[in-house]
């Protein structure tokens, strides 16, 4: 609780400083981190709380981006387009959930992974509506560059805040208890009278709502979207790494993880253009081996113990 308050206060301070003194680069970075917080927190609802490792984040993100993009091209007001995109994505998530949420573990992961590919292909082929592989240009929101940058920082941060509030409320709700029981032991959850089917679908829909709106805002922010960009599989993978980095199944974990991940990304991507995905892979391995519960569990002594337990006995110092 105290920890959550501190992290919240720090995030608000960063937001205020950015808004007052940030240059364009800093504003862009701030908007990106807000988007990462949203995606990681949203993934944590289904992947962390309910324990269903979803790879459908890219599908929800791309669908949100395209729904909003198409709506805006047809003259629908910005706020309606964004909210509508979120609702349509949530509806899509309910249908997807009905199809694949009875699968468990790896099977569910594979099933969810396919969703983005299917949507990408549909977007590619349906040229008359989506513009196909050429992409879609969105109408400019108006105002000068700095006002726009600040607007998107505010909106994306607002969404991130809403996602975190939703996650926090969830941990204190009946549905939250149900999801944790499902993650822990789904058979037992059923025995005590939890409607496992509905709970899982609710979690997936809630998660997708935030991802869809994030996609919609992203589309307006970058003005141009194409299928390979907004349905990119890295959009599914990055939120998982962020959540692993910060701590799965906690409210603060995804927030901390998103900031840490953006830091690493800026550091590694800028200095190593060729090998950055290699670093990403190494990071995943290191996380799983040494910090399975995320940065929150970081203690100097415990890392040493972990290194010792992972090493073969003859290599132990």
């Amino acid at each position: 609780m105290l920890r959550g308050g501190l992290i919240g206060a720090a995030a608000v301070t960063v937001f205020g400083i950015l808004l007052l003194f940030g240059d364009n680069y800093a504003l862009r970075l701030g908007t990106t981190v807000a988007m990462y917080v949203t995606l990681a927190t949203a993934w944590n609802i289904i992947g962390g709380f309910a324990g269903y490792p979803s790879f459908a984040t890219a599908a929800f993100f791309g669908l949100g981006a395209y729904t909003s993009g198409i709506a805006l091209s047809n003259g629908i007001p910005l706020s309606v387009a964004w909210a509508g995109a979120g609702l349509i994505v949530a509806l899509f998530a309910v249908m997807l959930g009905l199809c694949i949420l009875h699968l468990r573990g790896h099977y569910f992961a594979i099933g969810s992974l396919v969703a983005a590919d299917v949507l990408r292909e549909i977007t590619n082929v349906w040229v008359s509506v989506t513009g196909g592989g050429i992409g879609l240009n969105l109408p400019l929101p108006g105002g000068d560059a700095e006002t726009q940058a600040k607007l998107f920082l505010c909106v994306m941060s607002g969404l991130a805040g809403a996602a975190c509030c939703a996650a926090w409320t969830l941990t204190r709700s009946r549905l939250g208890v149900a999801l944790r029981c499902i993650a822990q032991n789904e058979d037992a959850a059923q025995v005590i009278g939890i409607d496992t089917g509905r709970s899982k679908i609710a979690a997936l829909a809630l998660s997708s709502l935030f991802v869809g709106i994030a996609g919609a805002i992203y589309a307006s922010w970058t003005i141009y979207i194409d299928p390979s960009d907004v349905y990119d599989v890295s959009l599914s993978v990055k939120p998982i790494i962020m959540t692993l980095l910060g701590g799965v199944g906690t409210v603060t974990g995804p927030i901390v993880g998103a900031f840490a991940f953006l830091g690493l990304e800026e550091l590694i991507w800028r200095n190593s253009l060729e090998f950055h995905s290699g670093f990403l892979g190494l990071l995943v391995v290191a996380l799983v081996l040494f910090l399975p519960a995320g940065l929150g569990q970081l203690r100097v002594g415990s890392i040493w113990t972990r290194i010792r337990t992972v090493l073969p006995p003859e290599a132990r110092p």
Binding site: N185, D187, V191, D195
Partner: peptide
Amino acid sequence: SAPPEFVRRGLIHVPEGRRLFARL
């Protein structure tokens, strides 16, 4: 079609292998 209905009506199952919640 509604498993919780069974529990709500008082038809309670103690499953094979206990199925307790670990870490609780």
